[in-house]
Structures are given as C-alpha cells and as structure tokens.
Amino acid sequence: MTTRIEARFARLKEEARPALVTFVMAGDPDHETALKIVQALPGAGADLIELGMPFSDPMADGPAIQKAGLRALKAGESLKKTLSLVRAFREGDGETPIILMGYFNPIYIYGVDAFVADALAAGVDGLIVVDLPPEMDDELCLPALDAGLNFIRLATPTTDDKRLPAVLKNTSGFVYYVSITGITGAAAPDAGKVASAVKRIKRHTDLPVCVGFGVRSAEQAAEIGRGADGVVVGSALVSAIEASLQPGGTPAVEAVTDIVARLAEGVRTSRLAKA
C-alpha cells in the first residue's frame, strides 16, 4: 500500500521539483492557533508537514524550537491533544502528509502499541524520533512499519559510508539529511557540501533525500532544492510564531503563511534556476 508520503514524492517527481517540508510545534502558541496554522500550511505552499511533539528535554533542538515546545507544554499540549490536532486537520485535508517529529519518551509513556494504533487512526503518515538509533528499532521503528507508518531516519555530516547502511536499513518515506553538525537553527547550510552529501546518500538508497537545519530564506531554499528532493524549514517558522506574540506582532497564522509562501516560491524555482 502506498503511503501519503510516497504518493506525494511520486507526484513531485513527475513535476520535477523538490518538496517544501514545513515544521511547526503542536500546541504552539496554543492548541487552537496551532491547528489553524497547520490547516493553512498546504494552501501557503507546504508539500509535507512535520508536527513537533512537545517534550521538556529537546536535546537536539535549538533555542527557537525549544521555546516553542515549552510554550506548547505551558498551554497544556499533550501527545493525546497532538493526535486530536491531526484528526481535526484530516477532516479538511486527506492528502497532505503529516509526520510527527520528536523524542521517544512521550511515546514510551503513552505506550508504543497504543500510540502506533492511535497515530494511524488519527491520520499520521510517518514518524521521526531523533533519539532512537537503529540499534533500538524493535522499540518503535519496526512496530510502526508493520502498522503502515513510514519511519524516517536522520543522516548527518558525520554519518559515514560504514554507518549509512544501518541508518537506512528500516528507513522509509524519505531520508532526512541534517545539513549541519549541531542543533536546529544554529547555522546556514553550505549548498555545495549539501549537494555532495545528498549524492553520496543516494548511492545507498532510492529514497528521496530531504535537507533541513538552518534554511531560513527563499534563496537558501532554492539553493538547497537544486540538489535535494526536499527542503525542510522549521526554526524560521517557530521564530515567526514567537514574534507574533509580541505587542504589535503579525498574527501567528499570517506570519507563518507569509514565510511559507516565499519559501515555496524559492523551492518551485530551484530547478528552473538549475536549468
């Protein structure tokens, strides 16, 4: 059975363009506003949506996403409410892939079997769990795959050719290449190095390779999109949500969709620029 993620990348391949993958935190700045933001993302140009699962100890995230998670937790977001957000989104959109991204602890507390069943029923398509290495695939990866969820793994600049087969073994949907060493939003990626890394990964897999960490502008998105199957943007969006909370700030939904529209234009022109 083809998943929404696989179907979306097949369509984008026909259109000869990379995907724009957007990340926002569930429940940020509150549950209702977060739902409106997620509902608005496809219309603004997002091809796939990564939805953060708030967690109190997000070790791989930079300050912007850490603060987004804390805002969400303070507003009462939980994993159960995050799944209800996905269900509400699915009432109006049956095609845009939704990927839950975060850490294993909330899933472990929820119960792996219950979580996988409830995520599938809610309309979740894939999982990115950043603190579960391949050596722990029995914990969540294999049950998720058996249920029909894609399990997306991260590859980094330090993932060498010896390690890469283990990383890719049970990966499905796409490979998420972390373009810089360090936390999210810490630095801008080097498009040339990213393109070389994507080519190296593609020698080991037929899966699409999406690139994230550090992409903030349409120009960067266009540069990265020339050598990748998708461009992931997160910190820029959650920073816009934070700014919307300041006196006189642009409303959160509008602030996010304005950025996404510009990024989408960059992604959609990336291959034209290459030609």
Rank of each mutant, 00 (worst) to 15 (best):
V124A: 13
P134R: 09
I201R: 08
S78R: 04
T257H: 13
I37S: 06
R8T: 15
A114P: 03
L142A: 07
I152R: 02
A75C: 07
A228S: 15
S235A: 10
F89G: 00
D190G: 11
K274P: 00
P247E: 14
C141P: 01
P143Y: 10
M25A: 14
E254P: 06
G212Q: 12
G148T: 12
Y110R: 09
E15K: 15
G173A: 02
R203M: 10
M1P: 12
T96W: 11
R90P: 05
A155Q: 11
L48K: 06
I99E: 10
I49A: 01
A275V: 15
I37E: 05
T22M: 11
K199I: 05
V215I: 15
A243R: 08
A122T: 09
T205P: 13
L100V: 09
S179D: 02
P143E: 09
V178E: 01
A68C: 12
L168S: 06
P58D: 07
E135H: 11
L120P: 01
L145G: 01
Y108H: 13
L79I: 14
L51D: 06
I98V: 15
A64N: 14
R87H: 01
G212A: 02
A240L: 09
V116P: 02
A243Q: 14
P251R: 09
T181W: 00
L145Y: 03
I49S: 01
A240P: 03
N150S: 15
A166F: 11
H204T: 06
M59E: 00
R17P: 00
I224T: 12
V167T: 09
P133Q: 06
A117V: 02
Q220A: 11
R8M: 14
K67G: 14
F23L: 15
A88E: 15
D131V: 09
M25N: 12
D190E: 10
M25F: 10
I152F: 09
T184L: 03
T82H: 01
A221E: 07
P133S: 08
D137N: 14
G182S: 07
Q220H: 04
R153M: 06
V238Y: 02
P106V: 08
L263C: 10
T82E: 07
A121R: 12
D61W: 00
L168Q: 05
